[in-house]
Amino acid sequence: MKTPFPFSAIVGQHEMKQAMILTAVDPGIGGVLVFGDRGTGKSTAVRALAALLPPIKVVEGCPVNSERVADCPSWAEIGSRKVISRSTPVIDLPLGATEDRVVGALDIERALTRGEKTFEPGLLARANRGYLYIDEVNLLEDHIVDLLLDVAQSGENVVEREGLSIRHPARFVLVGSGNPEEGELRPQLLDRFGLSVEVRSPDNIAERVEVIKRRDAFERDFDAFMATFGAQDAEIRETILKARKRLPKVKTPDAILNDCAELCIALGSDGLRGELTLLRGARALAAYRGDRTLKRDHLRDIAPSALSHRLRRDPLDEAGSGARVNRIVADVLG
């Protein structure tokens, strides 16, 4: 298997990389949606994330990546009680995937050859405790979207069909990418993404040249390239691990909670998910930067990613939702 392009070697796209790092610090943020032009590194960043993330402890052979034997589903045939380290799973959900492939179904071959009614896990089982990646998420079929909404809400996959009644944990970080020119995302699914970022092709010649140089070096002198950026990836991974330990200790002053509420009221965002995501994202950012107390600077940096996709559309505002968020942030936070 070919080593993916290093995460630290991606040129620019700071907001996208920051959003992905924050979901690694706190998976409870709720995933990342990346919209933008073709060829801007969206898929590359997700592949790179898989190699960057710290490994997880899993029971060998457990289909849902449980850390303890007691947590493995009763229907699973693990055959071993050994706990091993494994790369954090990053599972692709292709656009043409059937419902059976996504949620799991009866193992037809085993039913026909042995007469046994056995569950064959789907992509949601494999993605548990990891990432589920959907390229062109805005083109996903409606019935698959409905399935994902149910599972994202409960953190559990329930399959009741063909005489089977199966439940298993399915807690994953949802990462979606797409081109807005090819269709809009359903509001129900859009709201499930904790952070949303827009990426554009660089318009700076020096930056574009650097992209070409790095990609060419990756393909022509792989070992030397990985020696440089592999070490930088390792530093990011170590910082993520430290941030995870620091996260529960980050202090949140009441004034910051007031700022979160005031921002969301001023922006007119629906529900309370905006405040909660803004708070979690800002807290993860503080932990990643090594700060012990949540400050307005953290809110300023995370607000566009946490809130821009939650705004009601304003056809008279040509600047876009990101610019609207920045204006309100400047008004509220100074």
Score class of each variant (00 low, 15 high):
His14Ala: 10
Arg200Tyr: 13
Glu198Met: 12
Leu149Gly: 08
Arg327Gln: 12
Leu53Phe: 06
Glu15Lys: 10
Glu219Ile: 01
Arg312Glu: 13
Ala170Pro: 03
Ala125Val: 10
Ser74Arg: 14
Ala266Ser: 14
Ser8Cys: 11
Asp254Ile: 04
Phe225Pro: 11
Ser308Arg: 13
Pro54Gly: 02
Pro315Gly: 06
Lys213Val: 14
Phe229Gly: 03
Lys245Arg: 15
Thr23Gln: 06
Pro121Met: 10
Cys62His: 12
Arg167Ser: 14
Glu160Met: 11
Thr3Trp: 04
Gln153Val: 04
Pro169Thr: 09
Arg101Thr: 09
Leu106Pro: 07
Val102Ile: 15
Arg161Gly: 07
Arg324His: 00
Val90Tyr: 00
Phe172Ser: 04
Leu247Met: 06
Ala19Lys: 09
Glu262Asp: 14
Asp26Val: 03
His298Cys: 06
Asp301Trp: 00
Pro315Phe: 08
Asp291Leu: 05
Val209Glu: 14
Gln232Leu: 14
Ile56Met: 13
Ser80Cys: 08
Leu189Asn: 10
Asn65Arg: 14
Ala97Asp: 07
Asp135Asn: 13
Leu93Gly: 07
Ser321Val: 00
Ala224Glu: 13
Tyr131Asn: 00
Leu95Asp: 06
Gly268Arg: 07
Ile144Arg: 04
Glu162Phe: 11
Arg327Val: 02
Asp314Pro: 04
Thr40Ser: 15
Leu95Val: 05
Ala255Phe: 01
Leu285Cys: 06
Arg215His: 13
Ile302Asn: 02
Val151Met: 08
Lys57Ser: 15
Val329Pro: 10
Gly268Asp: 05
Gly31Phe: 05
Gly320Met: 04
Gln18Pro: 00
Pro304Cys: 09
Val211Leu: 14
Leu195Phe: 11
Ala319Val: 06
Ile236Ser: 02
Arg110Asp: 04
Lys213Leu: 13
Ser308Gly: 02
Ser321Thr: 13
